[in-house]
Design a protein around this nucleic acid. Structure first.
Lengths: 214, 214
DNA sequence: CCAGGCCAAATTGTATACAATCCTGGTTCG
DNA sequence: CGAACCAGGATTGTATACAATTTGGCCTGG
């Protein structure tokens, strides 16, 4: 995607994720043009992409509307994520390289550091989530399926909509952190079923955290 | 999607599916404009959508290129489809309505008719595939997940790329037809694991048919 | 007072003009 | 002779003008 379109996409997406554009609110092209600073063409392109990624709803001749998520949607999203990430972990157990295992070990070590350091909780959560994503990315790549990877990418992006609404507690994160060590162990052991199971547990735990309220 | 964009999308998509646009061939906007009869704007919109659906590859400032599929891609596609359709069938077993069960029964009966009638094999295959899609659609809807449904929709669309390259044998189709009856039985019995298993078998059989050559 | 229709303003869809980028072929310099 | 390089033509990216559609309110007739 080219400069203007990319910028428009990021800008609008951020505004949605930050909650600045409320769910169900209508997005008018003219307003967005003003906000992103480029003309309607790239703005429209960005809108089409956001619609394809399920951030907004497009009605013919009636513009765009920020998608509103229900609890059922979120539940659904996490169940699908559990299914796909579990599958990815299973495949990763078969294909993961030693280098990738090392990278994962590294990220997990850093997570330990983050949890035991004395930064603010907010900072800790932020750092942790980034490392968490790194671990998951390694699994996706090791699974060796472009298609699976892009599907998971979409699901994660959509999950971000919730992130801003709900703050994560560092305690809950620390509690689920042992999954990472076990995931690494299962992958090292090349144990497909173990890897699949632990990953599914990991996602279901995250889902529970969201739905029951940390 | 509006008139011009929709038409452009369909036209280009058909040209790709029919093989008229060969894999890896470059699509120039000027040519497409001539072919679809609208201006560049809707053509470009169609291209973006086709890229999102993985029919083409877009490189910044370098136009579009028809995606070339390898055997590995197809294998991958069917494995993901088996996973997701299996999951869908399991959920359908929990949620399917009596009306939906009736509809499925109806489609399956029609399939029996098609197989035992004396039309040309080509016509039979065509009719059968349509009914087959109807059965799967019922399952998707009964699964009750918009997201799952749209994901499966994308996978099926992508699988169509192969359909033109390979002709289906009516014998192979007839052989796998018993899956449908069993699927219906599992759904009537509300047996989640059974429904999931038979659906996965069904997809894996289709995959085998493609990969080993009818 | 309300239903329905109709006009005007707002908004989105499409066409086209212009700008930026990339590719190709020939040319020059080491 | 080969590699870097520099037009200029081709192609895509962006801006804007114009067309089609929708929206909302006003008016009219029942």
């Amino acid at each position: 995607m080219s400069k203007a379109s990319e910028h428009a996409y990021r800008t609008i997406r951020e505004s949605i994720l930050s909650g600045e554009f409320a769910p169900n609110s209508r997005l008018k092209e003219a307003e967005l043009v003003e906000r992103v600073g480029f003309s309607r063409t790239p703005v429209r392109e960005a809108l089409r992409r956001l619609a394809a990624e399920d951030f907004i709803l497009l009605n013919r001749n009636q513009g765009a509307q920020v998608k509103a998520w229900t609890m059922d949607d979120i539940d659904d999203l996490y169940q699908l994520r559990a299914l796909l990430e579990g599958y990815a972990a299973g495949r990763a157990a078969e294909h993961i390289s030693l280098i990738q295992l090392d990278n994962m070990q590294l990220s997990i070590n850093k997570m330990d550091d983050v949890l035991s350091c004395n930064a603010t909780n907010e900072k800790k959560v932020e750092d942790f989530l980034e490392l968490n994503q790194a671990v998951h990315t390694v699994v996706w790549q090791a699974a060796g399926s472009e298609r699976l990877q892009s599907m998971l990418g979409l699901l994660i992006e959509q999950a971000l909509v919730i992130k801003t609404a709900r703050q994560y507690s560092i305690e809950r994160i620390a509690r689920s952190h042992h999954h990472h060590g076990e995931l690494l162990a299962s992958l090292k052991a090349r144990d497909v079923l173990w890897a699949e199971s632990i990953m599914r547990s990991h996602i279901h735990a995250a889902r529970d955290a969201l739905l029951t309220g940390d």
